[in-house]
């Protein structure tokens, strides 16, 4: 087990290097720092001096991979690649194009993200399992077919409409909660209810439908027939035999997402004005702040790899048949 985790962590290194090379290529090779300077400065102010100034100010005035002017190790370290990419490995994210410290931004902004994403995640899974269980109880009836159609219909609605609809009904028409905003002190829950509710409702269609399939897949297994032959009632079979078995794929399917909860949700956060990492990313995209985007890509990759490792560990924990090696 320990050796397995260590091996997975080691395997993460080449992946992170790959991620970095890819983003670096995207940001600096496809578009040279000169191009970036032009687009950041705007057409009006483009003079060679202005470009040089901008590059110097933002640390793009070095060669990409190899600095022939420097000596020794500095040949490699005095480069954009080292400055902008290798340092990420030490969690040194540097400054954004607008001069803010990315590391401290991330540290403060991840909590609001988590405050929305975590309840959405937990409540969502609970609701989806309950809904799916109810539907499975009526398997084969008209109610089941109707529910499946409803799930597909719910899935076919864009996330944007869930948010807009939720804001319009709950906040504007019924005036139950504020439309948007987030105050850390006091009644935070007031601002959290609606985003969480929207997130949960938007996820029901796809989630409950998937879980229903998983339950039905288990319901077709031989051991269910054995349980019936023992004289178990249908409810006992559903809760004591099908549910524990179906929880394995459910659990392992969602565990990969847990670390990424820190990243928040782009859409929810921007619509509801929550100062989390999701809206941070969106602002970075809109202001074309590539330093932030690069850092977030790196953080996102680490969290994803962490999720993969957690998934494997959760497998051994949930399924007695699985042993890691």
């Amino acid at each position: 087990m320990f050796a397995y985790i260590v091996r997975r962590l080691l395997y993460a290194i080449p992946i992170l290097i790959g991620v970095n090379l890819l983003t670096f290529t995207l940001f600096f090779v496809v578009n040279s720092p000169d191009d970036m300077a032009v687009s950041q400065l705007g057409d009006k102010y483009v003079t060679p001096e202005a470009i040089e100034n901008w590059k110097q100010k933002n640390g793009y005035d070095k060669p990409l991979f190899l600095n022939p002017d420097a000596a020794g190790a500095a040949r490699l370290t005095e480069t954009i690649f080292f400055d902008k990419s290798v340092r990420l490995f030490a969690f040194d994210f540097g400054r954004s194009e607008s001069g803010r410290d990315i590391t401290s931004d991330v540290a403060t902004r991840m909590w609001p993200s988590l405050a929305v994403a975590l309840p959405t995640f937990i409540v969502g899974i609970g609701v989806n399992i309950c809904v799916a269980l109810m539907v499975v109880m009526f398997h084969g009836t008209r109610l089941d077919r109707g529910a499946v159609f409803l799930f597909v219909a719910l899935m076919s609605i864009s996330y944007l409409f869930y948010i807009i609809g939720g804001q319009f009904l709950v906040a504007k028409t019924w005036r139950l909660v504020p439309i948007s905003g987030f105050h850390a002190e006091g009644q935070v829950w007031k601002f959290l209810i609606l985003p969480v509710l929207v997130g949960v409702v938007a996820g029901i269609g796809a989630g409950a439908r998937w879980y229903r399939t998983l339950f039905l897949e288990e319901a077709n297994q031989d051991y269910v027939r054995t349980a019936r032959a023992k004289g178990c009632s249908e409810l006992t079979i559903l809760f004591r035999h099908i549910l524990p078995n179906a929880l394995i794929p459910i659990l392992t399917g969602v565990v990969v997402l847990i670390p990424s909860l820190f990243m928040g949700s782009l859409l929810i956060e921007s619509f509801f004005g929550i100062p989390g990492l999701g809206s941070y990313m969106l602002d970075a995209i809109n202001s074309q702040d590539f330093a932030i985007v690069r850092s977030m890509v790196f953080i996102g990759s680490i969290l994803y790899i962490l999720g993969l490792i957690l998934t494997d560990i959760s497998y051994t924990w949930a399924d007695p048949r699985v042993r890691l090696s």
């Binding site: 051991y223 054995t226 035999h241 524990p244």
Partner: peptide
């Protein structure tokens, strides 16, 4: 098939 007829997680 006893392997599949027994509940794998019990």
């Amino acid at each position: 098939n006893a392997m599949s007829a027994l509940n794998p997680v019990q």
